[in-house]
C-alpha cells in the first residue's frame, strides 16, 4: 500500500503489450478496460495484483494485464486463487472467468469459494455460450437455444449464478454490463474493496456466436433499489427480476477466511519432540 501512495497509477499502467485475440466487438474488451480502470482507481501497484483464470475467452485476460497472472486449467481458477491469497494475503487477487469455466466445469469450486469467503474478487463474463469451442450452450444458456451440439436446445433450466452465490455465502454480489465500462469499473472498485469473496457477474455479449446479445445494451437498466445486506431479500429480488438489473445487489458482513500465516511460534526442531520416546 505504501507503493500506491507514492505513485499515482494510470489505467494504462495495468495493461500489457499483448494484443488480445478476442473477436472485435466482444464485450470482454470492455471488461478489460473496466478492470484496469478499477485498479487505477484503487491505486494498487500492478505488481501487487494477481489475475487468475481458467480456460475460455474470458480467461485470456491475465496476459492482457500488466499484473501477475495465471492462466491455468479449465474450471479451477478459484481454487488456485484461494491458495495464492491464503499464502499471500498482501496481494490483491482477481479471478476472471466465464459462464462455462465458472459455472459448469468449475461449478463445485464456485460453491465452495462462496462458502470459504477468501478476500478476492470473482469476475465472470457471462455470454451464455462457449465461444472458444465454436458456440455450445453453457449453464446460463436459454433452454431452446439451438446449436450443433444440442440441436433444438438443451431443454435445461439455466443456472442462476447470483442466487447460487448468495445461497453459498458470497459476501458481495453484483451484476454489471460490459457495455457500461464506467459503471462496471465503479462496481469492481467496490467489489475489490469489500472484504471477503465478491462475485461480479458481467453480462458480456458474444458477437460471433450470440449476435442477438448485441441487443443487451437496450435491455439493461440500473437496479431500482438500494443494495441490501439481507441475503434472502437479495435472492428474492434477483429471482424475480428480468435478468438485466444492474448494480450492487448484496453486501454482506461475514469476516473473510484468512488463517494466520508467516508467524512461527516454534522451531522446526521442536516438532521432533513428539516423536522422541
Amino acid at each position: 500500500m505504501s507503493k500506491a501512495q507514492a505513485v499515482a497509477y494510470k489505467q494504462g499502467d495495468y495493461k500489457s503489450k499483448v494484443k488480445p485475440i478476442w473477436c472485435p466487438g466482444c464485450g470482454d474488451y470492455h471488461v478489460l478496460i473496466s478492470i484496469t480502470r478499477a485498479l487505477a482507481e484503487i491505486g494498487v501497484a500492478p505488481e501487487d495484483v494477481a489475475v487468475i483464470s481458467g480456460i475460455g475467452c474470458s480467461s485470456r485476460i491475465p496476459a492482457y494485464t500488466n499484473c501477475y497472472g495465471f492462466h491455468g486449467v479449465h474450471g479451477r481458477s478459484l481454487a488456485l486463487a484461494a491458495g495464492l491469497k491464503v499464502a499471500r494475503p498482501d496481494l490483491t487477487v482477481l479471478i476472471t472467468s466465464g459462464d462455462g469455466d465458472g459455472f459448469s466445469i468449475g461449478g463445485n469450486h464456485f460453491l465452495h469459494a462462496c462458502r470459504r469467503n477468501v478476500d478476492m474478487t470473482y469476475i465472470v463474463m457471462d455470454n451464455r455460450v462457449y465461444g472458444m469451442t465454436k458456440g455450445q450452450p453453457s449453464p446460463t444458456t436459454e433452454p431452446d437455444w439451438d446449436s450443433a451440439l444440442s440441436p433444438g436446445g438443451t431443454g435445461l433450466r439455466p443456472f442462476h449464478p447470483l442466487v447460487i452465490a448468495l445461497a453459498s455465502g458470497a459476501n458481495f454480489v453484483a451484476r454489471t454490463f460490459s457495455g457500461d465500462p464506467n459503471g462496471t469499473a465503479r462496481v469492481l472498485v467496490e467489489a475489490i474493496r469489500h472484504p471477503g469473496f465478491s462475485f461480479v457477474e458481467i453480462l458480456s455479449p458474444c458477437v460471433t456466436f450470440r449476435p442477438d446479445e448485441k441487443e443487451w445494451k437496450n435491455m439493461v437498466h440500473t437496479a431500482p433499489v438500494e443494495p441490501t445486506d439481507d441475503a434472502a431479500r437479495a435472492a428474492r429480488r434477483i429471482m424475480t427480476d428480468d435478468g438485466f438489473n444492474l448494480g450492487v445487489l448484496y453486501r454482506g458482513h461475514r469476516a473473510p477466511y484468512q488463517p494466520e500465516i508467516g508467524t512461527a511460534s516454534v522451531d522446526v526442531a521442536d516438532l521432533e519432540e513428539a516423536f522422541l520416546l
Binding site: 495465471f70 479451477r76 488456485l80 486463487a81 484461494a82 491458495g83 495464492l84 499464502a87 499471500r88
Partner: peptide, 8 residues
C-alpha cells in the same frame, strides 16, 4: 490447484 497458487 491451491498448492499451485500458493507456490506461484
Amino acid at each position: 490447484n491451491m498448492v499451485i497458487g500458493a507456490s506461484f
